[in-house]
């Protein structure tokens, strides 16, 4: 993992990735609000006919398609940001690069699964004449994939927390509270993994735990990690500038 690029170039490039984040947030937030199935989360209790009616309601259909197209474009924009965090993990005072590898191994999984859910939603919305049972099938697969696929997010948070704890140097890359924060957000996403068990209550995919807590934790994690990663990148830039 060493000597991939000259330090100055690499840090300058990271600033572009960093400052892209607030712009990407706007696309994410805009798509989230535009998708009618998120503003008031779709209930898993809807019958196949009700699901098809929801998709092919003229007020909903364009919003479903356009929001999912924008999500398709920008959902994976999380990956460059996660790669930036991996670069900071690589700078930590570890004895081996194992935790960097663990973190890199988690980077692609979450956004890829989100992209698959996005495709399921787009497929469900593609042909109004399709049998409602098939529309419901793809809607179910989209919601199960979107809601319950937290494995990579949980593992990446835990690996990052361990990496921060083992970053034993006088001035660590991230402060210790960031490790605690990552350990706290990991279990907040866990109930969503069981979303398909119930159609009612907090565990259901439209429930307080599986929808509210999980997505809230992800949003908070992205904001907090952008801020602390930004601090680390600027500090790195300052230190390298001073050393030059």
């Amino acid at each position: 993992m060493t000597n991939l690029a000259k330090p100055a170039t690499h840090v300058n490039g990271e600033l572009i990735l960093l400052w892209a984040m607030p712009v990407i947030w706007i696309f994410w937030l805009g798509s989230f609000l535009a998708f009618p199935g998120f503003v008031t989360p779709m209930s898993p209790k809807l019958s196949a006919q009700e699901v098809a009616a929801f998709y092919f309601d003229p007020a909903n259909l364009p919003r479903i398609r356009y929001s999912m197209i924008v999500f398709n474009w920008f959902g994976v924009a999380l990956i460059p940001f996660l790669a930036m965090i991996a670069m900071q993990v690589q700078r930590m005072a570890h004895r081996t690069p194992i935790l960097t590898y663990c973190f890199i191994g988690c980077i692609a999984g979450g956004p890829t699964l989100f992209c698959i859910a996005d495709l399921f939603w787009l497929i469900a919305a593609f042909r109004p004449e399709r049998d409602p049972a098939l529309v419901q099938l793809f809607n179910d697969m989209a919601w199960v994939t979107f809601t319950s696929q937290v494995a990579f997010l949980i593992a990446q948070n835990v690996f990052l927390a361990v990496a921060i704890h083992l970053d034993r140097q006088p001035r660590p890359i991230f402060p210790t509270w960031v490790a605690h924060f990552n350990l706290a957000t990991a279990p907040a996403m866990a109930p969503a993994a069981f979303a398909a068990i119930h159609f009612d209550g907090p565990i259901a995919w439209d429930g307080a735990l599986s929808f509210g807590l999980k997505n809230g934790a992800i949003a908070l994690w992205i904001v907090v990690m952008t801020l602390v990663t930004g601090q680390a990148v600027y500090r790195q830039r300052h230190e390298q500038g001073a050393a030059a």
Partner: peptide
């Protein structure tokens, strides 16, 4: 559900 929690480890 258990796999969805810890599968990425």
């Amino acid at each position: 559900g258990i796999i969805f929690v810890m599968g990425a480890f």
